[in-house]
Design a protein around this nucleic acid. Structure first.
Lengths: 334, 334
DNA sequence: CTGAAAGCGCTTACAG
DNA sequence: CTGAAAGCGCTTACAG
């Protein structure tokens, strides 16, 4: 028999209204009355039922988070950032993934319709952007954490990073260590981040007087296999390259392997740079130079933006950008 | 102005009770009435408010999950397993971490007291076992996902794996490939899993007539650095070893590095085996032979056990054990 | 400074 | 087969 506000009121000989007031610190109330009520609350160990408070207030103090999958290497960082911020503000995080495809989305949609949470953080599962936009237009407060897509002309609040300048930094670093003939292994071309990373990287080389020939930019898909294949094919085709820039770390791991397998050394013969800076990057052999994506900070920023909106701050209409930073390790420097 | 059950009732010219009945499929009701109500529900796009249903029913259809941190290499797997099962049963997953220490636990405790969820899945954050036990005794339905601790004599429902026989399998494999002088780098000795892994491994070697000397079992802490240090010190001390068994993969990565740094080859001179089989294990150079912990299956099993309990199945009083399996890769086989 | 009453949006005996 | 009413446990005008 859980105790309720009525029990507290009876024991303290006041109305439920008064108990509610001391609970929420609203309205003027006699200090001695308040003290008495507080004593009873402590004595009974009373805690208001979240379910009742939620219904009465019309909110849940819960934020939903939709992500494609939980097993991606950097997903834990984003989640941890979001959870830390939400938790500190006494919000809960209700987690949704798209792992089971359409059925997952159906369940998610049901929870949205039932108003199980007050707002949404989302890393867009591929192919769900239209649906997400619909929810946004219907008035669901949300913040997108955008690691891949370029949402041209879209006004959904977004937290992103600097794909273009991160890639440019990687290019400058390679130029500095004297590499002029890089191979680039990209992500899928449908992603905005792929376009930006390619552009940022190639434009720096072009400006430096070392334009990258089209055959040196090979299409990948963010997998380790893409790194292996990209390097192998370049070698088989007789291409001359002294560096590889991969659009993510997993791909870079594959590139390193293919380079070593071919009898070349990393970084002496070929320097390798990744993108993401997943936890394993520094543990890899050799440790991987890479563009650090601030995933945790992005998760934090997204959560903070959403909470600020609940408190009345208007959602920003331009993306919040947290800079990516280049991290030098042994895969580019002996 | 969200539409409510009253709107549906009015439009269908029935009582809220009747609408509730067609919603929940309870009680006998005229098929034509039901059809009419369903039509109105569709027409209005009505979905019952989760908040109101929760209060009326006294449950939330939400399961809490408490984990130490979201950034551990295998955490995503456990979470994904749990989420997939919960989602399929239309349950939500409310995520809690212990990342901010005592403050985190305070927030968590507040949510427990407020009954924000119906049951709990927990990977015990170090030092919180007494608190968890208290919650269990107070009647909070829970299932422990036990990757480290041995809860001797404890009756909290648990899902675990076979640490002892997994380590024994690793030992047998090393014997099969002719290694008789392994080095063991353990986890912290306060963990039950450390004790079991050490015991499973050393007893197989002892039975095979190759007892492992005490100096060959070095205390580690599950970090990469422990692997590096353990191997370096063994080499410095002039120990003769032809294999290393590490109590987790991260540590094994470090061991591999230290071995290579010393001019030795893996696996020709020293074979290396890890434990966990984190996603990177197969991507490592060389790919790591390791004991596979079925983290995703453990997450699934824990969730299923909890849901079954909600449906009336008594919680099992002995641990659910999902076997660990040995996975051979290049770090033990050239 | 305090309380009675209505309301949040459902579910569920109870009665017919 | 169907509905009026009470109840879930709070919050919040409104009145005093």
């Amino acid at each position: 028999m859980p105790i309720t506000i009525a029990d507290v009121a009876a024991r303290a000989k006041v109305s439920k209204t008064t108990v509610s007031r001391v609970l929420n610190g609203k309205g003027e109330l006699d200090e001695s009355t308040a003290a008495r009520v507080r004593a009873v609350i402590d004595e009974l160990g009373y805690v208001p039922s979240a379910r009742a408070v939620n219904l009465a207030r019309g909110r849940t103090r819960v934020v939903g988070m939709l992500v494609p999958s939980l097993t991606w290497p950097w997903m834990g960082e984003v989640l941890q950032g979001a959870v830390d911020v939400l938790e500190a503000e006494e919000y809960g995080l209700l987690l949704f993934t798209c792992n089971r495809g359409d059925d997952s989305m159906r369940q998610f949609a049901a929870q949205v319709a039932a108003k199980s949470f007050d707002g949404l953080l989302v890393i867009e599962p591929e192919g769900t952007l239209d649906y997400i936009k619909t929810l946004h237009h219907r008035g669901l407060p949300m913040v997108l954490i955008d690691d891949r897509d370029q949402l041209s002309g879209e006004q959904i609040p977004t937290v992103g990073t600097t794909n273009h300048s991160g890639a440019a930094d990687a290019a400058r670093h390679l130029l500095e260590i004297g590499r002029h003939k890089p191979l680039v292994i990209t992500g899928p071309s449908r992603f905005g981040c792929t376009v930006q990373r390619t552009d940022g990287f190639t434009s720096v080389f072009a400006e430096a007087g070392h334009p990258i020939p089209a055959e040196h930019v090979v299409l990948g898909d963010f997998t380790r296999a893409a790194g292996v294949e990209g390097v192998r094919e370049a070698i088989a085709a007789g291409r001359d390259f002294d560096a590889v820039f991969c659009h993510n770390d997993l791909c870079a791991f594959g590139a390193v392997q293919a380079i070593l397998d071919s009898g070349r050394r990393v970084p002496e013969d070929v320097a390798v740079v990744g993108f993401d800076d997943i936890p394993m990057a520094g543990h890899h052999q050799p440790p991987l130079s890479t563009v650090h994506q601030p995933m945790r900070e992005m998760g934090e920023a997204a959560a903070r933006t959403l909470l600020a909106h609940f408190d009345g701050t208007p959602l920003p209409n331009r993306p919040t950008v947290i800079p990516a930073t280049f991290t030098v390790r042994a895969s580019t420097q002996a």
